[in-house]
Amino acid sequence: MRLIRRIWPLVAGLLVAAGVGSAVQAQDQVPQQQASFGRVTLGWGRFFYNDLLGDGHDRWQTGGYTVSILRGDRFDGHLPDRPGRILEYRLAASIIAPASLTSPEPDDRRYAGTLNLGVHTPWEWRGTELSLGADMVVTGPQTGVGRFQRWAHERLGLEEPEVLGNQIEDGFYPTLVAEAGHTLTLAGGRLRPFAELRAGDESLIRLGADLSFGQIGSDDLMVRDKTTGQRYRGAPGTYRQGVTLTLGGDVAHVFSSVYLPEGEAAQLRSDRYRLRAGLAWQGKKSSLFYGLTYLSPQFEQQAEGQVVGGLSLHVKF
């Protein structure tokens, strides 16, 4: 982690330089291409995660759902050479909870319901795959996430959450997210190291890599889930049937988190890591992805990590 703290200013500078460089490059483009530019829906991405699909518990990073709508003039399996040509409109909701919803330990983390609305743009510059986005993260009882969980538990006959009176407060957090990655072709697979910067609801620097075996997703436009780090398809590239195995991991240094405020019993753990594996299947009309992610403890009083399961399903009728 000491290495991350030393090199994160360099990574940040590279991300900013890449964005500035590609923006300058875009100004030099012949404007004829822009004249015919018209947006269409390129694809929909959906990703659901829950720890009941992983280690079977209902705690900490307990669940979330994200919908991504990709729009642009076209996507042929290659990212555009400048930002703004493709836009991802993202809507997400998530639940963070203590280990017990009825009688939490005094040093456990507080309940947090979140909503996330954002716009992201992916592009490629000199062989580097880039993504830059702006999100508005909304927290607290105003989101209605806690009320929804209570309603769902009542309908399913599960224990009702009694921790909603001790939620993370209402708030609005403008958040910037940037990622840079580069795909390397290996014998029988693809390796994609990446770096990520996040500043807002949580401020962190992350370094990691994703490894895949199989042709499914090789030229799809992939989107990364915030919590698990799993990548799911936002827009399809070349249609192929088959199976792809994915492996990945990353480490992060966290500077601040609104979900673990300073001065509370649950103290932010500055270093965290994730390990993940998944299997993607593509049939004639439908596709399915299921993955497992290990999340290391996120606060000092968290005695162990957790495993969450993720699911992405596309069905054509």
Rank of each mutant, 00 (worst) to 15 (best):
M1L: 15
L3C: 02
R5M: 05
I7A: 03
I7K: 13
W8N: 15
P9S: 07
L15S: 10
V16M: 15
A17W: 15
G21R: 11
A23N: 12
V24S: 11
Q27E: 05
F37I: 01
R39L: 14
V40T: 08
T41Y: 02
R46P: 01
F47H: 08
D51Y: 02
D51M: 00
D51F: 00
R59N: 00
D76A: 08
L79K: 04
L79P: 09
L79S: 01
P80V: 03
G84T: 10
I86K: 15
T102C: 06
P104V: 13
P106E: 14
R110N: 11
L115K: 00
T121F: 00
T121R: 09
E129M: 07
D135W: 06
M136G: 10
V138G: 12
T139D: 12
T143N: 01
Q149F: 02
A152H: 04
A152L: 09
H153K: 13
Y173C: 08
V177R: 10
V177L: 05
E179S: 04
H182G: 09
T183L: 07
T183P: 08
L184M: 11
L184H: 13
L184R: 14
T185A: 15
R190Y: 08
R192Y: 05
L197A: 15
R198S: 04
A199C: 07
R206L: 09
R206Q: 12
L207R: 15
A209Y: 09
F213Y: 09
I216Y: 08
G217F: 01
G217E: 10
S218D: 14
L221T: 09
V223I: 05
R231E: 11
G234Q: 05
G237Y: 06
V251D: 00
V251F: 04
S256C: 13
G278M: 01
G278P: 03
G278Y: 04
L279P: 03
A280C: 06
A280L: 01
Q282M: 12
K285H: 13
T293V: 06
T293N: 06
E300I: 09
E300G: 02
Q302W: 14
G305I: 07
Q306I: 08
V307M: 06
V308Q: 00
V315M: 12
